[in-house]
Design a binder for these strands. Structure first.
Lengths: 116, 116
DNA sequence: CTGTATCCCAGGTGATACTG
DNA sequence: CAGTATCACCTGGGATACAG
């Protein structure tokens, strides 16, 4: 298989899902389904409100997730992987699987070197 | 399928392949096989020497690619996807496929809106 | 609860020039 | 050919405070 000249443009598309938190957010939505803002935050140790909001907005702009606001007090907002977002499943699954294996490998490799 | 608690750590692993140029570089090495520095540069419109060097070093540090230097003048350096790097194939393929489809979709969507 | 508005810093990235 | 060195910029991302 030869590389298409449009490969360069693929990079563009990829930037959509390679924010610092995007893969994890998407992975959560994929696995857990619809999630509230606070639920996502709870499951993403270390992310700030600002960042979570920002990443979600970007994903929403790309029509990868959908945002449902309940007009009530206190507010309630749910995020769901859109139909189009579902098409990311192969990538997300592959990432998850590889990431898990990679961590296992790294742990094994570091058995002999325990510094600091 | 439930999310493992180690999902958070997967993020770490993902950072290895989500540099601005890394997916494209890896895609090239995967598809084209061994490539020289200059070949990679030629195929990556816009990347600077500095960046290419840096990205390659990082990938090398992660043992995803191997670097073979020929002791000769002029210098010749070849980069190849390592055996371990091959395990990224599923992700890379998935990314390439999705990226291509995404571009097609985007083009279609922008047919009706021609502003600016 | 679910955000938005500011401020701020570190690191990523580019341009250019130089070297083995 | 295949880098390294240096400078300078800019964006991503964090902390904090405030708001509907």
């Amino acid at each position: 298989m030869k590389l298409e000249p449009n490969l360069c443009k693929v990079e563009d598309a990829l930037n959509i899902i390679v924010g610092k938190w995007k893969p994890i957010i998407l992975l959560h939505l994929l696995k857990e389904g619809t999630q509230r803002f606070s639920e996502l935050q709870k499951h993403l140790p270390g992310i700030t409100q600002r960042m979570l909001t920002k990443q979600l907005r970007e994903l929403e702009d790309e029509e990868i997730i959908t945002r449902k606001v309940y007009a009530q007090v206190p507010p309630k907002v749910e995020y769901t992987l859109s139909e189009y977002g579902q098409t990311l499943q192969p990538i997300l699954e592959a990432m998850h699987e590889w990431g898990t294996k990679h961590n296992a490998r790294k742990k094994k490799n570091s058995l002999s070197s325990s510094f600091e």
